[in-house]
């Protein structure tokens, strides 16, 4: 589904991603972990199409399309979804209007006929139930005054409504209380099937207890320095990052890169 090859990207003269290789297939869950500032969110943003990052080398293939040639909206319309680490507040637009606009734009772009208001409302209600979201929420302004946890839940609500092929969840667990974490994780699991894939970016094993990854990658200083199965996350939880980051730093030092 997603093939990231030797991706190098950054801003102006500082390089943040220094050659990322990552392959994600349908039906898989990948976890990306790594110290603060290692480039996790940057990678997510580049996949989603944020223009402030300049890609200097490498490519991203998504189901045969060269993602880097597409605008952010075209990527979304093809099924890429990013749950933001810091969701943006949009005063003046209600959650329901926002989602309605988003769904109708996506359907228009993919040649589907528009959803009736009735169907849309029903779908919203179903997904709200799935995520245990209270009534009254739809008429609030998008993320405005939402608590940290509410914002994250709102991201997953949008994901549930849009049914993307590839979901990238950037620290969706941060800000969620224990109950909310379980509810949101269960929601994500229910949305999972053999045709879609999920990348979870997280610092904590806690989330991975619920959303069990097939692969775990450690990002450090713009590179994936270690990949493994779900056990790797447990090992990191226990030992921290030092043992692999030191090794990696030595290696890159020796290569003088």
């Amino acid at each position: 589904m997603l093939k990231v090859k030797n991706l190098k990207a950054g801003i102006e003269d500082s390089q943040i991603l220094k050659g990322i290789n990552l392959e994600v297939n349908a039906g898989e869950v990948h976890a990306i972990m790594g110290p603060n500032g290692s480039g996790k969110s940057t990678l997510a943003s580049v996949i989603a199409g944020k223009e402030e990052y300049e890609v200097v080398e490498g490519n991203i293939d998504f189901e045969g399309d060269d993602l880097l040639e597409l605008s952010p909206e075209e990527r979304a319309q093809k099924g890429v979804f990013l749950s933001f680490q810091y969701p943006v507040e949009i005063p003046g637009i209600s959650v329901s209007n926002f989602i309605k606009t988003s769904i109708s734009e996506q359907r228009k772009a993919t040649g589907m006929k528009p959803m009736t208001t009735k169907d849309l409302l029903k779908m919203m209600r179903d997904k709200m139930e799935l995520l245990n979201i209270k009534n009254g929420y739809l008429s609030r302004n998008m993320n405005e005054g939402f608590s940290g946890g509410e914002k994250k839940r709102n991201e997953i609500f949008q994901m549930a409504m849009l049914e993307p092929k590839l979901s990238i969840l950037d620290e969706t667990d941060s800000g969620l209380d224990i109950d909310a974490l379980r509810i949101v994780a269960n929601g994500v699991n229910k949305l999972k099937n053999k045709n879609n894939a999920t990348i979870v970016i997280t610092h904590y094993q806690r989330l991975l207890d619920y959303i069990v990854p097939d692969f775990v990658h450690v990002l450090h200083n713009g590179r994936i320095i270690k990949s493994g199965g779900k056990k790797l996350a447990l090992e990191l939880e226990e030992k921290g990052y030092d043992w692999i980051t030191k090794e990696a730093d030595n290696k890159w030092d020796k290569l003088k890169i």
Binding site: G49, R75, A76, I90, F98, A109
Partner: peptide, 26 residues
């Protein structure tokens, strides 16, 4: 905000219009 909307599949012109409307709506 513009990127956020576009990442939800909303075309750039529509996204600008929605944000502009949001700006005035208060």
């Amino acid at each position: 905000a513009l990127f956020y909307m576009r990442s939800r599949g909303i075309g750039i012109e529509e996204a600008k219009a929605v944000l502009t409307y949001a700006f005035a709506s208060e």
